[in-house]
Write a protein that binds this DNA or RNA. Structure first.
Lengths: 253, 253
DNA sequence: TAGTGGTCTAGACCACTGA
DNA sequence: CAGTGGTCTAGACCACTAC
């Protein structure tokens, strides 16, 4: 089963063997693997070696361990697909923003909590918003839930010059959300840009999004621009990578 | 330094302490952390406990370990930004495809190896390409390098009915790449769609892309459609998440 | 209560790096 | 060569799950 003279670390051999059996279908998604103590017998190695092998598979997102229950092949999460059409004015007219529009389309019960605060812009925010570091920005910190489960974190920043006296500085921005309030104030949105990346979550994000080991987050920074090109809003979103796929479409040329 | 009666696992406390010192700037990017044996003294715990703490930070992408040298704060990688304009016909006219256009813009020396093969479409490919599973597709398997380093993997699939008799079935597709050959054959491209996700790399991807622990990959599936809506090509790309950011822009409405 | 994974110790030897 | 991280053992006790 394992070759201790091959030079390849034994725990890697065990991990490779288990990975093969899983991809071959010997253990299906959701199935329980043998217990660690059973694997000690099977492979003839110490418990730590087994646990190192399982640690590799956890980091790859292949298995999940549950204390007191066992080790299981990770079942695939249901993927939600997001496309940019959710930002259309037509959707805004009927709903309260992009997230509620998604909920209506995908059939889950949405909820969200918002905290509003004001702070000086940092280097990065100033760069995206075309203002000076230290200029005051309105910050809307949102946690979005689907059927009670946290599925998305979003931090929106706007130069305060655009939000003073509007409902954007309130917890409830009203029908159509912040973008609708901006347009009412004469700031018609001209175009959007989204910057997409990925990384491992911070411990705070991992617990907020209830992420298991081996699940990255997708980061999306959306910047909304006025028709004259002035940046109006920067929105930093963090999505669990096992539950989201983003779709972008555009005409050739 | 650590509280063994708090109920919080000691290795998590050590990881949290190191993480704090790193974010506080006590250890800057590229700095060497104390050796494992030094930390045994500092924290008064066994070596395994220290190594478990470091394993957490490695999985988060916060530190990298180098055998025989030490543990280092991960230095930030230089980010390459990709925007959809690289797919314009204007860029194609002067270059050999999107990757070479990027190279010209960003100033690195590109190289790539291609393998061409033919195989029956699987379920997923058939779905994206609007054909039947089992129908023959032309597969172009590409490894792209910047200054000798592998930076991108791409697998392109086209229904063979569109590629027969064209240079798309050759290793060298000629000036402008496969898209230029398609248009010459009368298949004018109408629009593109890109589906973006993220996950941890497979062991094969991790070694090909020389990914350290704690670095996810960004997956991009691009589908090119003819003006009448017929899918022409599906391109599965795998990018190291620490070196790429994708940008999409579009007009409001 | 039995079985599971989670945490931790003390010690050993190996492989790699750099002076 | 000394110092570093990588691998592995044998054993112990704890915390959680499920019957």
């Amino acid at each position: 089963m394992v070759d201790k003279t091959s030079g390849v670390p034994v725990h890697r051999q065990v991990a490779a063997d288990l990975r093969e059996r899983i991809t071959a279908g010997e253990y299906a998604p959701g199935d329980k693997l043998p217990s660690e103590r059973a694997m000690i017998e099977t492979y003839g190695v110490s418990r730590l070696t087994i646990r190192e092998a399982l640690s590799i598979l956890r980091a790859e997102g292949v298995v999940v361990t549950e204390h007191g229950r066992g080790v299981f092949v990770r079942p695939p999460a249901s993927i939600q697909r997001l496309s940019r059409s959710r930002l259309s004015r037509a959707a805004r007219a009927e709903n309260k923003g992009a997230f509620l529009a998604d909920a209506a389309a995908q059939g889950f019960t949405p909820s969200s909590s918002v905290r509003v605060r004001f702070e000086p812009a940092d280097e990065r925010a100033a760069g995206h918003l075309g203002i000076q570091p230290g200029d005051e920005v309105t910050v809307r910190d949102r946690v979005m839930r689907a059927d009670g489960l946290v599925v998305q974190l979003a931090v929106s920043r706007l130069p305060r010059t655009f939000t003073r006296g509007t409902a954007i500085e309130e917890v409830d921005t009203g029908p159509g959300g912040a973008y609708a309030r901006l347009e009412e104030a004469g700031h018609t949105i001209g175009h959007y840009a989204e910057h997409v990346g990925s990384r491992m979550p911070t411990p705070e994000e991992a617990s907020a999004l209830q992420l298991g080991q081996g699940i990255p987050v997708i980061t999306v920074t959306r910047v909304a621009y006025r028709e004259d090109g002035t940046p109006l809003e920067m929105n930093d979103m963090v999505l669990p990578a096992d539950r989201y796929e983003l779709t972008y479409e555009w005409a050739a040329e």
